[in-house]
Design a protein around this nucleic acid. Sequence first.
DNA 1: AAGTGGTCTAGACCACAAA
DNA 2: TTGTGGTCTAGACCACTTC
Lengths: 240, 240
Amino acid sequence: MTKSNKYKQIFEDLSEKIQDGTYKTNSILPSENELTLIYSTSRETIRKALTLLAQKGLIQKLRGKGSLVLDVSRMDFPISGLVSFKELQTSMGRDDIETTVHEFGLINADKHLGSIFDVSDDTEIWNVVRSRRIQGERIILDKSYFLKSEVPLLTKEICENSIYEYLESKLGLPIDFAKKEIIVEECKEEDRRYLDLDEYDHVVVVRNYVHLKNAALFEYTESRHRLDKFRFVDFARRKH
Amino acid sequence: MTKSNKYKQIFEDLSEKIQDGTYKTNSILPSENELTLIYSTSRETIRKALTLLAQKGLIQKLRGKGSLVLDVSRMDFPISGLVSFKELQTSMGRDDIETTVHEFGLINADKHLGSIFDVSDDTEIWNVVRSRRIQGERIILDKSYFLKSEVPLLTKEICENSIYEYLESKLGLPIDFAKKEIIVEECKEEDRRYLDLDEYDHVVVVRNYVHLKNAALFEYTESRHRLDKFRFVDFARRKH
DNA sequence: AAGTGGTCTAGACCACAAA
DNA sequence: TTGTGGTCTAGACCACTTC
C-alpha cells in the first residue's frame, strides 16, 4: 500500500474487492465489528472507510442491516468533482481521442479575465486553446486559463497530453474544489473554426472554476461541446 | 432546535452565523478546541459539523491554520444534490413561476419504465406531466414517475405545489441519493405541445434518478428545458 | 433478544503553519 | 515552540432490523 492513512488503505482495499467481485453486487459486506477484526483497527476508522465507499457510490449503508454492495457496472463515469479529459478518456476506454493545440502562450489579463480570477489587469496568465477529435470528428473546444503565479512553466507538449497530470503529479498543486456551470450558447466564430459543427447552431458550454487548497482560483476553463455529443453525469448524495 | 443530532445542530448554528455575518467572509472560525467549549461537546462531534460545512462549501479547512469562512454570496444555488423546483424558485427569489399539470394519474409500468425502476411490468406508477411557466413563457416540461408502493397517495393539488415537500415533510420518505444525467435531444412532439419553443429545435434533458435509503429507485423524472434558459451549477470538492 | 449501523466521548499522537 | 487541523483508539449508548 502506498497511502499512509489507514482508513484510505482500507477504503482502497474494499474498493478493489468490490470491483473484482470478491464482494458481490447485492451482497452485504462484513459488519463494522467484523471489519475491525479483519483490519485490526477501531470501529471509527472502519466507519471512515465505509463512509468513503458510500460517498463514491459503491455501497449503501443500511441501519440495522449492514452495508449493501451496489451495482458498480451501472455507474457512469462520475464527472462530478474534478476530472481531467485524460481521466475521462481512460475511464471510458477510449483511445481514439486526438488533442490539437491551437493557441498556446502567456497573455495579460484583460478586464474579463481579471474579474474572473480577481486579479489586477496585466497579471500574467497562460492561455491554451485546444480541440478534441473523437472518432474523427472535432467535438470539443477547450479554452483554458491558468495563473502564471501558480503554474510557472507550461509547454505545448504538456498541453497535448494531460495538463492535470502535470499539475498534480509533477507540480504537486493542492487542487481542492471546483465550481461547474453548464449552459447552452449560440455558436461563435471560434466554434465554427475549430469544431465540426455540422448543422448545429448551438454549443453546450461548461465553465469550470478550479480552486487550490488556499481557496484561490487558479484555473478557469471553458469547454464547448457539440450538442449531440454532450453528456454529463452527476452522482449526488443527500446532504444532512 | 428541531434536529436530534448534536453535530447537525452545531452545523446549522454555525451555518446561520456564517450566513448572517456573525462569522465574516475570510475570517477564521474559532478553533476546534474552542468550539468544544462553546458547544460543550467532544472534538470529534465538532469535526463532524465542520466537515458538513466544508462539504457544503461554507468553510475551507486549512491544516495548521484554522477553518476559513468562504464567500457565501458568490456561490450560486447548489443544485448538485437534490433540489426540487420549489426550492430553486425560492432560493433564486422568483415568485413568478406557474406550474400547470397536464397529465396526472396511475399507470402500469411498460417495458421502458419497468427496466428503469427494475420492477415487473404492470407495477403501479404515478405519472405526472407538468410544465413550468417562468415570466410568461413555458420553459420547462417535467415528466415524473413515482412508485405507488412508496407513494400511496398523490393528488393533483400536491403536484401543483412542491411534490418534494409533500414526500419529505408529510410522508417522511427517507430520500438518500440521486443520479443526474444531462444531455441534449431533438424536440419531440410533447415539447412543442407543452412548451414555448420559439425557434429552438433542441431541448436540454435532465434525467433524475432518486433513491431511498434502502437503495431502491422510487422516482424517475425527466426535465426538459428550453435551450436558452437552461443553467446548471455544480459545486464539487476534491475526493480524498 | 441479538445484531446492525449512528452517534458521542475523552483521551492520544501526528503533520503542518506561524511566531 | 505553540496552536492548528488530521488521524486513531476503546469504549459507551441509541435506533433500527431481524429473528
